[in-house]
Design a binder for these strands. Structure first.
Lengths: 159, 159
DNA sequence: ATAAATAGTTGGCGCTACACAGACGATCCT
DNA sequence: AGGATCGTCTGTGTAGCGCCAACTATTTAT
């Protein structure tokens, strides 16, 4: 298992990711509608659960969204008491955004409700494989991109 | 490997998938722009490469897009000679859509160009893990959802 | 042979997501 | 005091995309 002729040169996951995300999102939309949530809310809640209390601009950076649009997103979530905005004691300009208990519960409910949708999309994978997939995605998601200096150093562009 | 205490009950990949797909798409857009492509074109080309010659409505079903929008998508690709529409000899109403040589080449170029973007998004994963991820995504993507009767039979909704 | 169904195309309408820009209050840092 | 920063609000523009309707070419069913 050492000198595999592995040539991952063209094994780009981007398009597949896009494709599957779309499939999931389509299903998620209808499943989540009765819960008053949208896919994008789920993403925010998930990030919030993983990251704990973060400022809004940190959230904007993680979500890679414009901060002005984060406002509306959080307004939605706060109106439903799924999220709480508290002023930071250190810097009172900042809002520390945090998941409420209700938010965590609702997130869990939503995830539960999504089981069927995932069964459809990931039907080809066995439970253990899905778990592997989840783990890989989770790890990739919980690291801020570009943060390491890698991208700055090398840019070979030679495939 | 039987009675693992694995509890994947709340390990839903949907949100992570969405999140990472967004990150990739944002980067892909700028990387692909010089090639005259957009993320959605990449998805279509990828599906086409995997699936061989398919009718447009089959493509619409795979991509889970409205068939009227498939037309424009294919117009783009055909205008660039990346894709070919031929009438099916069996059923002359149908268009058999197929990747051209140029299309396959361009797709490969695009994938090559996306290497940097993936390095940013999947920086947390080692090459072998990325390969695993790719393989899981590929398998999940190359099976039509709902096609099996699974989803029709069971709908427990009890988590 | 005639009717009905199907594949693709075109055009238009409308909604949603989002980026972007401008202006504002509150607050921090010099 | 003055400038930078965080969050908020509002408005504008654009892109993706679903959906409806009409039309042609073709197949299939009666």
């Amino acid at each position: 298992m050492s000198a595999l002729p592995l040539d991952p040169s063209e094994h780009r996951s981007g398009a597949l990711l896009d494709h599957l995300a779309r499939r999931m999102r389509l299903r998620a939309e209808s499943v989540l509608a009765p819960l008053g949530l949208r896919p994008r809310h789920l993403v925010a809640l998930t990030v919030l659960r993983a990251g704990g209390g973060t400022s809004q601009q940190a959230l904007a950076s993680t979500l890679e969204m414009d901060s002005t649009n984060i406002v509306g997103l959080l307004n939605d979530l706060e109106a439903k008491d799924l999220v709480e905005r508290r002023r930071s004691p250190q810097d009172r300009r900042r809002h520390v955004v945090e998941l409420t208990e209700d938010g965590a519960k609702r997130l869990k409910e939503a995830e539960c409700a999504l089981a069927g949708a995932e069964d459809e999309v990931f039907g080809a994978l066995e439970p253990a494989e899905r778990e592997t997939l989840y783990e890989l995605l989770r790890r990739a998601a919980t690291t801020t991109p570009i943060s390491c200096g890698e991208a700055l150093i090398e840019e070979p562009d030679a495939c």
